[in-house]
């Protein structure tokens, strides 16, 4: 950390963002959020839709959970409840968002609505909130970490969606289409991302 103290605040945030998004990609390095990724990555636009929603929720809930943890749980000595609290915060937040967009934009709701249940069960979001506590981050750093983590997930699912769109499933051997071929794609991509790991150390 020492090396970063002299550089300015925004540079630090940017490094955290890049490190969380690329070098420690939550989907390809830690394999969280795999289920909804396999289910939704058939097309680029649905991937991008879910990815954007996840990025938004991850960043916001990382910030929310930071506040809840350091200003409510720690003073009360209830750190052991953090896991269950984070889950409730994430689920409640998604539910709240669902209600808001349902009321104000039916169009957005129709295109995003199907993703909202998927977000609640996306383990990447919970993972980011939990890993953030292990790092000596302040509020804005946590927000940048959440944003980066969510963006990393977004990037991965958009890439997978792009590759899957180009695959003509007619030429695949029987039974391999769908999850099978997607797993192979992700396997190859994660091999590539292994090369990124350790490039930026925080």
């Amino acid at each position: 950390m020492e090396a970063y103290q002299e550089t300015n605040f925004f540079a630090t945030l940017f490094i955290i963002f890049i490190s969380a998004g690329l070098t420690n990609n939550i989907l390809l390095a830690r394999f969280l959020g795999m289920c909804s990724c396999l289910g939704v990555s058939k097309k680029v636009d649905t991937s991008v839709g879910l990815g954007a929603a996840v990025t938004f929720v991850t960043a916001t809930t990382a910030a929310l959970n930071y506040l809840v943890y350091y200003y409510i749980l720690v003073p009360l000595g209830l750190e052991f409840l953090k896991l269950i609290t984070f889950i409730v915060v994430i689920a409640a937040f998604t539910q709240f968002i669902e209600m808001v967009i349902e009321r104000y934009s039916i169009k957005l709701y129709n295109s995003l609505g199907i993703f909202l249940p998927l977000i609640t069960v996306n383990c990447a979001i919970l993972g980011i909130s939990l890993f953030m506590l292990n790092k000596p981050y302040g509020f804005w750093e946590s927000f940048a970490y959440g944003l980066g983590g969510g963006f990393g997930w977004f990037l991965a699912i958009a890439l997978i969606g792009g590759i899957r769109e180009k695959i003509n499933e007619k030429f695949l051997p029987e039974g391999l289409a769908g999850p099978g071929i997607t797993l192979i794609i992700i396997g190859i991509m994660s091999l590539a991302f292994v090369g990124f790991s350790g490039m930026i150390k925080i």
Partner: peptide, 16 residues
């Protein structure tokens, strides 16, 4: 939601 959070929160806290 308040009730169920309370019940489960209480259960976990008491076990803890």
């Amino acid at each position: 939601i308040v009730l169920i959070s309370f019940v489960f929160g209480l259960a976990i806290s008491s076990v803890h």
